[in-house]
Computed example of a mutant assay.
Amino acid sequence: MVGTVTLLGQNITIASRFCGPPQSGNGGYVAGLLAKAMPAGCQVTLHAPPPLDAPLTLSAADDGMQLHHEGRLLASARPYELAMTVPPAPSIDASSAAQQRFEGIVRHDLPGCFVCGPNRDPGDGLRIFAGPLDDPKQSVAALWTPDASLADRDETVASEFLWAALDCPGFFAVRPVSGLALLGRFAARLLEPVRVGETLIVNGWAIRHDGRKHQTGTALYRENGSLVAFAEATWISIPGR
Rank of each mutant, 00 (worst) to 15 (best):
V2L: 11
T6M: 06
L8N: 14
Q10W: 07
N11F: 12
I12C: 06
I14K: 06
S16W: 00
S16P: 14
C19I: 05
C19H: 04
P22F: 00
A31D: 00
G32V: 07
G32A: 10
G32F: 10
L34T: 04
A35K: 06
A37P: 03
A40W: 00
A40S: 14
C42S: 15
V44I: 15
T45F: 04
T45K: 13
H47I: 02
H47F: 05
A48T: 00
P49I: 10
L52E: 13
A54H: 14
A54K: 15
A54E: 15
D62H: 11
M65H: 08
G71A: 01
R72K: 15
A75T: 06
R78C: 07
M84I: 14
T85I: 11
V86Q: 09
P87R: 14
P88S: 14
P90V: 05
D93K: 06
D93S: 12
A94W: 03
S95H: 04
S96W: 02
A98C: 04
A98Y: 01
A98E: 00
Q99C: 11
R101E: 02
E103F: 11
G104N: 09
I105E: 10
H108E: 10
L110E: 11
P111N: 05
G112C: 02
G117Y: 12
R120G: 01
P122E: 15
I128D: 06
D134Q: 07
D135E: 12
P136I: 03
K137D: 12
S139E: 10
S139N: 13
S139M: 01
A141W: 05
A142L: 06
W144E: 02
A148K: 07
L150H: 05
D152R: 13
R153L: 13
D154S: 14
E155V: 01
E155R: 13
S159H: 07
S159V: 12
F161Q: 12
L162A: 05
L166G: 09
P169N: 10
G170N: 12
F172C: 05
R175G: 03
P176M: 06
L180D: 02
G184T: 06
G184I: 02
G184W: 06
R185Y: 00
R185W: 02
R189I: 08
P193C: 08
V196C: 01
E198H: 10
L200N: 06
L200F: 13
V202F: 06
R208D: 10
H209A: 13
G211C: 03
Q215E: 11
Q215S: 05
T218V: 03
L220M: 04
Y221G: 06
Y221D: 09
R222G: 11
N224G: 07
N224Q: 13
S226W: 00
L227S: 10
L227M: 11
V228C: 09
V228M: 13
A231E: 03
E232M: 13
A233G: 14
T234P: 02
S237P: 04
P239A: 09
P239Y: 01
G240N: 11
